[in-house]
Design a protein around this nucleic acid. Structure first.
Lengths: 201, 201
DNA sequence: GAATCAATCAATCATTTGATTGAGACAATG
DNA sequence: CATTGTCTCAATCAAATGATTGATTGATTC
């Protein structure tokens, strides 16, 4: 195909769709899903509204595209550090570090995911993408806690399901809340999670 | 129609505002803040759009009215059970029961609060109401944990701030998530929170 | 009973907004 | 070169949406 066509007026369909998704994500961060307008997206990409509709037939499909784009990014981030062969303690610290990294480098990801989660209540197409994402994340903790209980690094009376719900809930909510000192709060939360779940020596 | 209304065509301004807030809340639950339309509210209340604007000048003011209405309800619910003179353990169980009660009897409250929290990021008027609400709730846990550490019912190495963040985060997020088996999940979370924070006997 | 005020409505305005149409540009293919 | 398929835009539509206007109704006051 075309390796690199720097700034040509015409772009391939795939490239356009990526650009559209990116622009849409920026606008969602600024004005929320509620303030997402097809015209604004087209303007930011630098194309006509009709062109936007050529690549993404409807607004519904557009939101689904954004959801898909978010899933892609989360998957990529999740794949960056291999989990195999690591101990439960190593894995959970890896998980914590991953979240710290996301918070630092891609804070919009979580904002958009929250926004999509809101809409998922009414839009099954979005729910079909967002719900598995949450489940996957939570399930990773369930597995880690199971492993950690078995190898003795976590409390023996720990309930993997409950602990995973608490972990993901606390982490995401901690992020959702007040914009100021989010990072400090996250550290408070992660530290207390360790004291709460790790086996006392 | 409203059965308990004495069918009076004309109502006092305060009553109308209450009715408007109530109708708006119902619609927010059904379609989200995003799907909130002044016409729909007016129709549900049974008044003309102009009358709606007579009582609530703008849509912005309307959203603020809903936020205020939510604050009122939360405050009322919070006042129902007195905290004074109770032990830390009694207080936290009271807090858990209060949340169970809210989840059971007024699930919309949490949905709307989440929806408002989303908008608070962009709307300072809403933020001014919603943020203190969250802070108040979290702070109640901070105080309970402080008390509980002092009287020995909680872990001595517990960080009240971190633990409170985890508690409110886990509880609210647990509710936000999948509509199915929310109640079961909440019990998992509450049970695990006890094992995580209570002092081992 | 005239004056005043709160509450209400029908009608309408001015934008906004998602979507469509029909025509043209450009590249690749034969 | 002609054809074909991809990509793009100006112009426009129809519906929706927040808000306003001007007038009416009923109660309260003096």
């Amino acid at each position: 195909m075309n390796p690199d066509q720097p700034n040509s007026k015409r772009e391939s369909g795939d490239d356009r769709r990526v650009a559209i998704a990116l622009a849409a994500r920026q606008i969602i961060v600024e004005k929320g899903l509620e303030g997402l307008r097809t015209r604004d997206i087209a303007a930011r990409v630098g194309i006509n509204i009709a062109t936007l509709h050529y690549h993404v037939p409807s607004k519904e499909a557009l939101v689904a595209l954004v959801a898909e784009s978010i899933r892609h990014d989360f998957r990529a981030q999740s794949m960056r550090h291999p989990r195999e062969g690591k101990s439960a303690l190593e894995q959970i610290h890896l998980e914590f570090d991953d979240f710290r990294e996301t918070v630092r480098d891609m804070p919009e990801l979580i904002i958009i995911l929250t926004e999509l989660g809101e809409r998922a209540r009414r839009d099954s197409a979005v729910a079909a993408i967002v719900t598995p994402l949450h489940q996957f994340w939570r399930n990773q903790f369930v597995e880690i806690y199971r492993l950690g209980i078995a190898d003795g690094s976590f409390r023996p009376d720990l309930d993997p399901e409950g602990a995973a719900l608490i972990t993901t809930g606390a982490m995401s909510d901690c992020w959702r809340q007040s914009t100021v000192s989010r990072v400090d709060r996250l550290e408070l939360v992660l530290a207390e999670l360790e004291r709460a779940f790790f086996r006392k020596s």
